[in-house]
């Protein structure tokens, strides 16, 4: 079967690529488009390292077929920062030392942004449940949760 020609939008920019019918969106992002910020930890939707947004919905890109991206809007970690400025979530992750090895970080950032887009004022429990689909083996989550709560406060315009 010939490759499929996919037209999509990634981080607000038009993108086109060729994909095998069985190829995942994760694989297409990483190996066809060179967007390796999205990581593969399991390939079965259990770790959240490949989190992206798909028409605004948080998904595991390893569970989405690349062909499904036709006409969709995809958001990845590469789209979080604007120009020279990091997104407040990225900045707070650095200030709180919310990453050790950093391989789960892109997935956490995308998942946390999806949460804050939907709920700008989550409590700790809400953040913990919203990020329960993202595995981190280094931090014990403490500093990640603090970074997300702090970023939420900053995005709401509250004084530090």
């Amino acid at each position: 079967m010939p490759k499929l020609h996919i037209r999509t939008e990634i981080n607000g920019e038009p993108a086109e690529f060729l994909a095998e019918p069985h190829q995942t969106l994760l694989d297409a992002l990483r190996n066809e488009l060179g967007l390796t910020g999205t990581k593969e930890g399991c390939g079965t939707g259990d770790c959240g390292a490949c989190s992206v947004t798909f028409d605004g919905q948080l998904v595991c890109s390893c569970l989405v077929l690349a062909a499904e991206a036709e006409g969709a809007r995809i958001g990845t970690v590469e789209g979080l920062a604007s120009g020279e400025a990091l997104h407040p979530l990225q900045q707070k992750f650095l200030e709180h030392a919310a990453l050790q090895c950093g391989v789960c970080t892109p997935g956490f950032l995308v998942a946390a942004k999806a949460l804050l887009d939907r709920n700008p004022d989550p409590d700790e429990r809400t953040v913990r449940y919203a990020l329960a689909g993202n595995l981190c083996r280094c931090t014990g989550y403490d500093k990640i949760i603090r970074a997300v709560l702090d970023a939420a406060a900053e995005l709401r315009g509250e004084p530090a």
Binding site: R30, T36, G37, K39, V77, A81, L86, L94
Partner: peptide, 23 residues
């Protein structure tokens, strides 16, 4: 003190190259 790690910006933007990121 608690400065921001020097490899931090690369790791929160997805630019840092991990084992599977090179082709």
């Amino acid at each position: 003190t608690r400065p921001i790690r020097q490899d931090g910006a690369e790791k929160v933007t997805g630019r840092a190259n991990f084992g599977a990121d090179l082709s």
